[in-house]
Design a binder for these strands. Structure first.
Lengths: 183, 183
DNA sequence: GCGCCCATGTAACTAGTTACATGATTCA
DNA sequence: TGAATCATGTAACTAGTTACATGGGCGC
């Protein structure tokens, strides 16, 4: 069973809304899915070529005045099928690795002040993340040009997922911090 | 700036409670930190050797009757220092990759029934995870031999972190599911 | 006799990141 | 003049997983 390269589907997903260059895809990712998915150029360009070899996308070079030429990729029917098939497959189990929890677990010999600081940093980080999510949600809700966007709801709920997660961490931090008072 | 290999610190952390073989370390990981950290043999054995070269651990071969010999590793003062230094460093920022959210985001063209199934699977998964965490917490609280364990509190709070997270996801699923009714 | 546990390790592969390379245009 | 944006790509490296190899003991 060949290992599934998820980057492929991220790219196909982005192309499913319309033709893009590798550069455009990166921009789209950074705008919409950055809080749960990231891609970098060094990954995008080779994978696009691979998708072309497989017949999932086609490419066309588009000349531009005073700018480097773009390689614009378009998803094919084969690519759409592959994407839809993948969407129906169950989500693969992931192994989480939390450096934060690892540090906390091994801090039993450290001064409590250090433990408090660790937890407090975690709280602050998630507080900031939460605010960013809320701002993005507000932006989507208030921006008239997005009111008819086909992925609007999907976008909002993924942001909400992140927000709920951040809230859970904040709550945990607030409840856990008092356990390490003193010293 | 050399990339920090976190496996090293996971191993040092495990060794900080007492000498272990690679095999023992894997067992300890599976028992205590499995919900947020995993290591496999193919990673543990080479890293232990590297730690030995660096002087962070020493090893001794321990013969056993009717069993393969064990390589028992012991943390050195140098190793302890490295661990403590790492514990004080801020947690590195991680890039999350959520296949679930990626699929959800790209499901805007899929039938709603499929979206509901995706979310429902997520809910069930986290419901199960939550129950496992609660059972483990109960086990720790009820097991008299663990009442004096130096890491007991730390263990309980890391489990709680996972539980809060699972609860947040469950809540999100319950609120999000109705948005995709019909069809 | 089968499968699991103990115990250590290597080889091959997949995935992902950082740094490097190039070069024009636009804006402050 | 310097930074940012547009645009594509390669090389080298780090990290992590799966599969393979070995072999005895123990319980059902």
């Amino acid at each position: 069973m060949a290992k599934i390269n998820k980057t492929k589907f991220a790219l196909l997903g982005m192309l499913s809304t319309g033709p893009c260059s590798g550069y455009d895809i990166k921009k789209k990712c950074d705008h919409s899915v950055a809080h749960f998915w990231n891609e970098n150029y060094a990954h995008i360009y080779p994978v696009l070529k691979e998708l072309e070899r497989e017949g999932a996308v086609t490419s066309e070079s588009e000349k531009q005045e005073g700018r480097p030429a773009k390689n614009v990729y378009t998803i094919t029917d084969l690519g759409r099928e592959a994407l839809e098939k993948w969407l129906m497959e169950p989500v693969e189990q992931v192994r989480v690795r939390s450096e934060f929890l690892l540090k906390l677990f091994f801090s039993s010999n450290a001064p409590k002040q250090q433990v408090r600081q660790l937890i407090e940093s975690e709280r602050i980080k998630h507080q900031q993340v939460k605010e960013v999510f809320e701002q993005q949600q507000q932006m989507i809700l208030n921006e008239p040009s997005l009111s008819q966007h086909p992925r609007r709801t999907y976008w909002l709920v993924t942001l909400n997922y992140g927000k709920y997660n951040a809230e859970a961490v904040i709550k945990w931090c607030e409840e856990t911090l008092p356990l390490f008072e003193g010293e």
